[in-house]
Simulated assay, not measured.
Amino acid sequence: MYCRILRVPRMNSSTLLFVKNTEQTQTKIQKENQRRRKLVKVMWVSVLALAAAILLLTVAKIPVAEGVTCSPMQLASRAAAMTSSSPPSEACCAKLREQQPCLCGYMRNPLLRQYVSSPNARKVSNSCKIASPNC
């Protein structure tokens, strides 16, 4: 077995100063990286908070039909106003407003379309001040 002896260079004051400066630079770089990571976290939290706020504002403006039972039979008693030129009663308008979220479904049904999209049905909607649905 042979042992090999390595020769270590002697460190003078300029070498030690270089090592010290290198350590300080590495410490500064590590601190800067930590600061950047914190900033990135803060930025992402801000972005997510803004997205959540926008989502809440958007959802708050979406009209939701609350407990409406879509039944064309509920409009059957209003058929006289829709098939003739007689003006609708206030009860008829109230029932029509209640069934307004269902009108698109009625328009898609071939059996009901002729009643819901007739000119008289449009007159009833206009006199009840109900906007025609865009389906």
Rank of each mutant, 00 (worst) to 15 (best):
M1R: 13
M1T: 14
C3L: 14
R4A: 14
L6F: 12
L6D: 09
R7E: 13
P9L: 00
P9G: 01
M11S: 01
M11T: 04
S14Y: 02
T15Q: 11
V19M: 08
V19W: 02
K20T: 12
E23G: 05
Q24F: 06
Q24D: 06
T25G: 09
T27A: 11
K28C: 13
K28Y: 14
K28W: 12
I29H: 02
K31E: 08
E32P: 04
N33C: 03
K38H: 03
K38P: 00
L39G: 10
L39P: 02
V42S: 09
V42E: 14
M43W: 15
W44C: 09
S46E: 03
S46F: 13
S46R: 14
V47T: 12
L48W: 06
A49L: 15
L50E: 00
L50P: 00
A51S: 11
A53G: 12
I54K: 02
L56C: 10
V59Q: 14
V59W: 15
I62V: 13
I62L: 15
V64M: 07
E66T: 15
E66M: 15
G67I: 05
G67T: 03
V68K: 08
V68Q: 03
T69D: 09
C70Q: 03
M73K: 11
Q74W: 04
L75T: 01
A76W: 11
R78H: 11
T83E: 08
T83Q: 06
S85H: 05
S85I: 11
S85T: 14
S85K: 12
P88N: 01
P88C: 00
S89W: 05
S89M: 01
S89R: 06
E90F: 01
E90D: 10
A91R: 14
A91M: 10
C93Y: 09
A94K: 13
A94H: 05
K95L: 10
L96T: 08
Q99T: 00
Q100D: 00
L103T: 01
L103A: 07
L103Q: 08
C104S: 01
G105A: 05
Y106N: 07
Y106S: 04
M107S: 07
M107T: 03
M107G: 02
N109C: 06
N109A: 06
L111D: 05
L112P: 11
S117H: 01
S118V: 08
P119F: 11
P119S: 13
P119C: 10
P119H: 11
R122E: 14
S125M: 15
S127W: 08
I130M: 06
N134H: 09
N134D: 08
C135Y: 01
C135V: 01
